[in-house]
Design a protein around this nucleic acid. Sequence first.
DNA 1: TCATTGTAGTTAGCTGGCTAACTATTGTCA
DNA 2: TGACAATAGTTAGCCAGCTAACTACAATGA
Lengths: 167, 167
Amino acid sequence: MLQLKDLPDAKVLRKFAERYEDMDSRSVTHFLNILRIGTELAESLDRFLAKHGLLQGRWWVLILLMREDDLTSTPSELAEKAGVSRATMSGLINGLLRDGLVARKEDNEDRRSYSIRLTAAGQDKLDEVMPDYYPRVKKMMNAIPVQQREDLLKQLILLKEQSKVFD
Amino acid sequence: MLQLKDLPDAKVLRKFAERYEDMDSRSVTHFLNILRIGTELAESLDRFLAKHGLLQGRWWVLILLMREDDLTSTPSELAEKAGVSRATMSGLINGLLRDGLVARKEDNEDRRSYSIRLTAAGQDKLDEVMPDYYPRVKKMMNAIPVQQREDLLKQLILLKEQSKVFD
DNA sequence: TCATTGTAGTTAGCTGGCTAACTATTGTCA
DNA sequence: TGACAATAGTTAGCCAGCTAACTACAATGA
């Protein structure tokens, strides 16, 4: 996603407001700032995961597998839970297979299907990443008192519900 | 970016908290929700732009060009302002050139460089998109009173400053 | 001046998103 | 039962991000 490094200054806002009458400088500025900060948080997380040789997609697949009691799921279920297409999940699983972090076994009951299992190496990887990840998240979120965090989230949820205005 | 459709429930949080002692369920849940909503807002914008045959990257380049008094910039400047690598900007400009939304001219003073200019077709595209975009942004942001928006932004900026915990 | 360093832009190859089209298999129901 | 519909997964080809390596040119300074 774009980083929108260079947000519009007053002069630019005037220029655009002149040509496009319905523009509301304040709401545009707020919206762009919110988008930008969201992107920046996601990028921080990515850079952190990259230090452990992972990126968001693969990391999330490992977590989804660890959630299961038998450490096992199917590509379709994983795609559904991660919110990506089955094609994308194919690619993610292939990468994890190459790195030996998951294993694939044929399903005897449904021959179209496979079961994907977190390997010992995959669990090791999580055991390396998560004890590094959790304290950092805690530290970051502690910058905001809990009540204000709840408010923040409430406002964001409001915005998200409004995002249907773009449909 | 991941959509994180399936956020952890109480049982999963317990399982992870057991294995990883430093885990703070509340901060993890807050963090993941903020990330997810950021992603969803960006996706809404992308879907909107796609209806006009654009995506965030190309749309942003057109806007950066329109900001300039002579509607002209260079690939390097555009990359810098958009916050992407020069390689990525090469790709974006190529796409826009193919569609005729920008034009390229050699720089007589520095023969390594090109100037990229918004064409009439590019301006037309913006004149089609922006009057559709601005009222929607306004409508969306109006869901939150201005004071609360300012608070929201203040909290997000705090979080962003804290995101260095991932370094 | 000319060798070195720096800068502008592109290319190749990787990741990870998507849709559309495909194969293989399973399920349904006339 | 057998045709059709639905589902699981993959592949191909697109977009857009990255780094590293490259070409071409500009700028610097011994």
